[in-house]
Nucleic acid binder design. Structure first.
Lengths: 159, 159
DNA sequence: TAGAACCCTGGAGTGCACTCTAAGCAAGCG
DNA sequence: CGCTTGCTTAGAGTGCACTCCAGGGTTCTA
C-alpha cells in the first residue's frame, strides 16, 4: 500500500474560478498521475475511505469520477479540493457550510459574490478564533508560570 | 462517580495551587457578592443552566454549594473556574480532559506535577492550533485575493 | 395566599461528524 | 478455481457535548 513519496508537483492551471487550488502546496501529492483509488486518497489526506464516500454523498465533493466497474477514481483537482476542505475543517466550520460553498461552486458564475462573502466571513471567524486562542495561551502561560514558581518554593518536591 | 469529598468551600489550602484564578479579569463579574443562582451564572457565563448542572454531574465542577432547600449557590471561585473552563473549551480540549484536570485539583498537592504537565501539553496544542489557523488564514487570503482580482477583470466564461 | 417564575432530579433525546456493517461485485494470484 | 483483497451501496451505529423532559419543590411578587 505504500506509495512512492515522489512529489511531482501537479497543479491544475486553469486560469478561472476553478474548484480551488490552494496557494502553496496542499498535500504531499504522490506521482503526477490523475486517477487515484479511494485508499490512496485516504492515505494522502488522512481521511478514511468511509469519510471520503460520505463527503461525496452529502455533496461536499461533486460526483467523483468512476472506473468502468464503478470504482472511484479521484483526480488531482479532487485532492486540491480535499486539501482546502481540510483547512476549513481546522477552522471549525460546520460541514454544512462547506457543502454550501461546494454547491455555490457547482452552481456557477452567478454565485461569485456569495462565495467571496462566505470566504470573507470565514476569514473573520478564523481571525476571531486566533485571537481567542492567543488569549487562552496567555492564561495558560500565566498558570504554568505559577506552577513553575510554586515548584521552586517549599512544597511538593517532585521527582 | 464523584461523591464524598464534600468539602469544596472556597478553596484548598496551599498558598498557591487553588482552583485557578485567571491572570486578569475573567468575566464581567456582577456585584461583590458570593452566592449566585444558576440562572445568574448562566447569564454571566453564556452557558445554559442545563449545561451547568451537567458540568457538576460529570465532575467538571466540584460539588456546588447549596441553599438550605437544595438550590445551587455558585461562588466567585466557581465563576473563576468556569471562566478557565471556557478558555479550555475554546482550545477544543475534550471535556473528559478538563474533568481529569478538575479531578487532579481535587486530589490535592500530590498531583501538582501532573497538572503542570497537562497544562503544558495543552499549551503545545494551542500553539499548534494557532499555527494551523494562521496557515488557513493564508489560504483564505489567497483565495479572497483571487476573487477580488477576478472581479476587477471579469473573464471566466464557462458554466 | 395565590400565581408566576424559578429551581431540583434522573434520564431520555438531539445534532454533528463521522464510523461501521452487511451483502455483494471485481481483480490478482497460486 | 478458489482465495484474498479491495471496492461498491444503503443504512445503522457511535461518541461527544450538550439539551430537553417529566414531575415535582421553592421563591418572589401582587
Amino acid at each position: 500500500m505504500t506509495e512512492t513519496m515522489t512529489v511531482t508537483e501537479t497543479q491544475t492551471t486553469s486560469a478561472g474560478v476553478d474548484t480551488c487550488a490552494s496557494a502553496p502546496r496542499p498535500h504531499p501529492r504522490p506521482e503526477g498521475q490523475d486517477r487515484y483509488t479511494i485508499s490512496e486518497v485516504a492515505a494522502f489526506t488522512g481521511l478514511s475511505a468511509h469519510t471520503l464516500r460520505w463527503y461525496e454523498r452529502i455533496g461536499l465533493m461533486s460526483h467523483v469520477d468512476r472506473s468502468h466497474t464503478g470504482q472511484r477514481r479521484f483526480t488531482n483537482a479532487d485532492l486540491d479540493w480535499l486539501g482546502f476542505v481540510g483547512k476549513l475543517r481546522l477552522t471549525g466550520m460546520p460541514v454544512a457550510d462547506m457543502v454550501r460553498y461546494a454547491e455555490l461552486l457547482r452552481e456557477g458564475d452567478h454565485t461569485f459574490d456569495e462565495r467571496k462573502e462566505l470566504l470573507e466571513a470565514t476569514r473573520r471567524d478564523v481571525r476571531t478564533r486566533i485571537a481567542e486562542l492567543q488569549d487562552t495561551l496567555a492564561v495558560l502561560d500565566y498558570k504554568i508560570e505559577f506552577y513553575a514558581g510554586a515548584q521552586r518554593a517549599p512544597e511538593r518536591p517532585s521527582a
